[in-house]
């Protein structure tokens, strides 16, 4: 099967099963990375960074970037259009009964199960990014810790939890990361 067709199928799947917004597509992207090796885990982490700091919904940005990295401009278009196609069909199909759909106990129950699970899925995707950003290839477990990165991570994470800094736009954290990365030659 050609890459473009796989890309199309994978993103149709992502669009259909990613429940709860842009970040929910992340577990699907890490899965794609492991399965097809079109790009490295490090590339994916970079793509997330760029997608968070450019305009547009982050889920759409990530799909475009993954598509472009895999198959150029054609891949970018294929991935993005495939991503939005399932929800386009679903929303137009249920638009007339939307209020009933939203209040339907079966649907509400379903989402009460999916939301917690998706939290776990996003955590799992975060875990795979963490492995790339905070650890390095090394002979022993202890030597694999990238201490500078771990220290920076701890400081930034605390900052995201502070009342005063919480509201800052993600791009601020990303810019700080870039500057410190350059200064410390990370």
């Amino acid at each position: 099967m050609s890459e473009l067709l796989i890309l199309c199928l994978e993103f149709l799947k992502t669009g259909l099963f990613a429940v709860g917004g842009g970040l929910a597509t992340l577990p699907f992207l890490t899965q794609m990375q492991e399965k097809y090796q079109w790009f490295t885990a490090m590339d994916l982490a970079n793509m997330i960074a760029v997608s968070e700091s450019t305009p547009g919904p982050i889920g759409v940005n990530m799909a475009t970037y993954v598509g472009y990295t895999t198959y150029g401009v054609g891949g970018a278009l294929t991935a993005t259009l495939s991503l939005v196609f399932p929800s386009l069909v679903i929303i137009m199909a249920i638009a007339k009964v939307m209020d009933k759909y939203q209040k339907n106990p079966l649907i509400q129950n379903m989402f009460s199960f999916m939301r917690p699970a998706v939290t776990g899925l996003i955590a799992a995707a975060g875990f795979s990014v963490l492995k790339i950003a905070l650890f390095k290839e090394a002979a022993t477990f202890l030597a694999s810790f990238n201490w500078i990165a771990i220290a920076l991570f701890a400081v930034l994470l605390v900052c995201t939890q502070l009342k005063k800094l919480k509201k800052l736009h993600p791009i601020v954290f990303i810019a700080v990361g870039a500057v410190i990365g350059i200064l410390l030659k990370m």
Partner: peptide, 15 residues
């Protein structure tokens, strides 16, 4: 180097 730092920031944002 910049992207190495940026990836760490992304981790903090995801967490």
């Amino acid at each position: 180097h910049a992207f190495a730092g940026i990836r760490v920031a992304v981790c903090a944002l995801i967490v």
